[in-house]
Design a binder for these strands. Sequence first.
RNA 1: GGGGGCGUAGCUCAGUCGGCAGAGCAACGGCCUUUUAAGCCGUGGGUCGUGGGUUCGAGUCCCACCGCCCUCACCA
Length: 508
Amino acid sequence: MSHTYKEEREKKRNKLHDELGVDPYGRRYPDVEHIGDVRARCERLGIQAGQIIDDQAARVAGRIMLLRSFGSLTFVTLRDATGSIQLGISKKAIGNRWPVAKLLDLGDIIGVTGRLGATQTGEMTVWADNFTLLCKSLRPPPGKWHGLSDVELRYRHRYVDLFANPEVRDVFRARSQIIDAVRRCLVDRGFIEVETPMLQPQYGGAAARPFVTHHNTLDIDLYLRISPELYLKRLLVGGLERVFEINRNFRNEGISTRHNPEFTMLELYQAYADRDDMMDITEAMTAAAIDRIGGGYKRPFGEHELDFTTPWPRHKYSDLLAEYAGVQMEDVAAVRSKAAELGIDHADKDDAVVINELFERAVEDHLIQPCFVYDYPAAICPLTRRHPDDPNIALRFEAFAATMELGNAYTELNDPAVQRANLERQVAGEGDQTMAVMDEDFLLALEYGMPPAGGLGVGIDRLVMVLTNSPSIRDVILFPLQRPAGKTEPPDEQEARGDENAKREQET
RNA sequence: GGGGGCGUAGCUCAGUCGGCAGAGCAACGGCCUUUUAAGCCGUGGGUCGUGGGUUCGAGUCCCACCGCCCUCACCA
């Protein structure tokens, strides 16, 4: 390759530094005004086409997104976090800075002072009287029209995705607002936020395979947590009556549009409450998040419109099974027959496991609108209190939207003997090592006494998905896990690294 | 892990039956003080994901591998 974009820009950078005495990487540029605010000011002033208002100064900074050059006059579209605005940079107004202006490229970051005005076509414009190069970009940005659409490059080079595709920033801004709204909602209800171990000597609180790591000094294996549940319940024992944690869980399972190996989970526990209180909190948190990001309670998601207006419909698990699978939950023979009909391998599985697989296969695809599904088979709910009238039913619900499980809640089990029996059954469970070993300290805590409580887990990533109309969980996680890149890096980078390796080999 | 699809210039994409690897934008050189994806003239730019194979000849056909997307399984 005779030349590259990078080399072309490096020549400009060197010329700026060596011949024009300009620092290509700038420095502090204080007292800038948000471009969004400048635009608002222009609107208020009602500037007429062709007018320049001498006493309306502006000072902005951002990245050059578009350049239109007319010899001695250049129009720049400058963008910051709040929006974009046109700059007019003319040789006449800039004077001896003009040679620097001619070396500006798409993607450069500059600061500008000037006066507000409008061009002959009425476009609001900052007419520059000075500008400062704050960072010379050495890489060409993606095309100005199509942006960056290759999903692999978008995830691997998210920074490019973010500045090239403004709607991506909107999603992550919404994510921040959603989390903030959820957090405030809980704090306002008297919850305190806590942090419990991510490195756990034993894992538990969910059925999933963990990541294993090792602590060198202690010389022990540790697990990246699959759930904070057993620690948060210890806090209930300790008298922290309303606690929540928003943090990462790690599950060593498959990756899909709705699963990332690390994902953000909200878990909360409220003493003296129960499952039904958790439904109210789920609705309240979601409503708070929607109020915060705007757009109303009826929201598009793919082909559908999801209606988050509260209260959400509440469906009994067994009723849905009857409706969509055509079987009564208690009729084990019918359940197994239907499961076999749907191709579910059920021979060696517990009744409740088969029921749940049938539910997942036959029912979940129908759960488009936000809703709660309650009263789960007890055998798949080892941490949940039993229904007082039916020991085969657990006081659990899951919240669904767009066929995805958004949340999971229990009336928590606080009987240490029942809890021990349930966990022993899990540990002994045929071939299902995922529930792992007994957490004796957790059981000890229950023996000291845990107040009756409601507990709730909400998959934050999925909540963000349904509220931002994002079809893939990777669209709401800034850096989703990718296999290490092969040849996706620019070739000159690889050459550079190869050269370094060669040098290192020569030196040794 | 199974099934399906995709990978061509910096970006977005064409590439027919196997016959000289293309376009727009971007870049470089030139003209241009009111453009809105500015325009006009000119120029350069390719490991066609990687490696094999078939063939006189492969971006194209075959095989293997790598990566990504969708889907199923597992899970939330």
